[in-house]
Design a protein around this nucleic acid. Sequence first.
DNA 1: CGAGCCATTGAGTTGATTCAAATCCCGTGG
DNA 2: CCACGGGATTTGAATCAACTCAATGGCTCG
Lengths: 216, 216
Amino acid sequence: MLNDLHIQEQEVIDEHKECVRYRKGDVIFHEGGIPKGIYCIRKGGVKISKMTSQGKEQILFLSQPGDFIGYRALIGEEVYNATATSIEDSSICYIPKSDFLEIMHRNPAFFNKMIKKVCNQLGIMEQNLTIIAQKSVKERLATTLLMLKESYGMDGDESTLIDIRLSREEIANVVGTATETVIRLLSTFKNEGLIDFDGKRIKVINEEQLKKLAVA
Amino acid sequence: MLNDLHIQEQEVIDEHKECVRYRKGDVIFHEGGIPKGIYCIRKGGVKISKMTSQGKEQILFLSQPGDFIGYRALIGEEVYNATATSIEDSSICYIPKSDFLEIMHRNPAFFNKMIKKVCNQLGIMEQNLTIIAQKSVKERLATTLLMLKESYGMDGDESTLIDIRLSREEIANVVGTATETVIRLLSTFKNEGLIDFDGKRIKVINEEQLKKLAVA
DNA sequence: CGAGCCATTGAGTTGATTCAAATCCCGTGG
DNA sequence: CCACGGGATTTGAATCAACTCAATGGCTCG
């Protein structure tokens, strides 16, 4: 998104931005914290998640290089309602609130893009909520695998490798289920020839069948 | 929100807006439809819901007089991803897309309010998703009752009447569960003295206890 | 090369669903 | 105004998907 800014605006950002390296597991911002800027992922990956009072984690989404994170709370003038954690070694730029807001207000096209992005994100969340509320864990896992393939799929031969290393627990926390259930279902999918995996490297073998399961 | 507009802008809206009466059950806009304007509820109530392929309904939220609906898809330049249905006799104003967008772009304060509103809504959805994914039906029903009390509560004597007439099925479709489960849990809550009800008129008796259940 | 986390498998339990049947309630038409 | 019909609500019973607890084996990283 930043590519569409005027040269002059890019210079402002470049001047003030601060790029930091995060190791796997490092927290970028924390639920309850006050937003003072936004983050743009340059390299690596980040999970945005919420903790319940029982200590269970729900992963809301996964961010990739090029994505903004932390803008919702900043623009909405709230505290962060989720935590951002690096899921691999990452390089992330920090843009101070003042710079970001100033550019947003001076550049109507950018403002437009932002509101559109938030609206799209809201649509996605509404869809996800419906899926979680109404579908079985099996269907949700199939849906999640397809989503991961869409976002992280590397085109290979006949099969498609999902190029992100999530633990079984993290997959469970996206789907909204128990770790053991994910493990059992992944095995089932493997036996049925829908996917293949060795450890954290998961490949989609039969996308069509997986889609049928997801819609079910 | 419209109250903050300049007189001049209000006049534009008043001139072009179109207020329509909807009976209970009437559809205002339909999932998959193309947004051509936004709606502002003047009187009554509306549910925004999605249908799954199995024909199950998920209610995403309930709107009251003063609320805008349909702006997410319009601003996000998507088709409606949910259906809006009148849950009682309602009076709803329609503001054409062109008027709405023009005002949004000419009035930065209003634009700001809109993006902030969408961000807040996104935060609410993220919270709801987490609750549905991680909490038991009992906890979710308690949460829903508190939300309804917050939005529709009428201050009464010791107890608080929830002034909205939802069917058991509709409550189930907010919570994301089966109708029978809602009925059983409502009875349990009644026996435990947390709530009281006669048909669709539900009163919150012991809010503290209900909150404890909701957080659980 | 050991420690500790991660993945896997088994077994038992349970929360929630589905199906079925009975009763209630509300709006409508006679 | 009242009887009727059909949807809404309630209750019961059986089933099952998913969770929890527990134990084992495997991998990774210092």
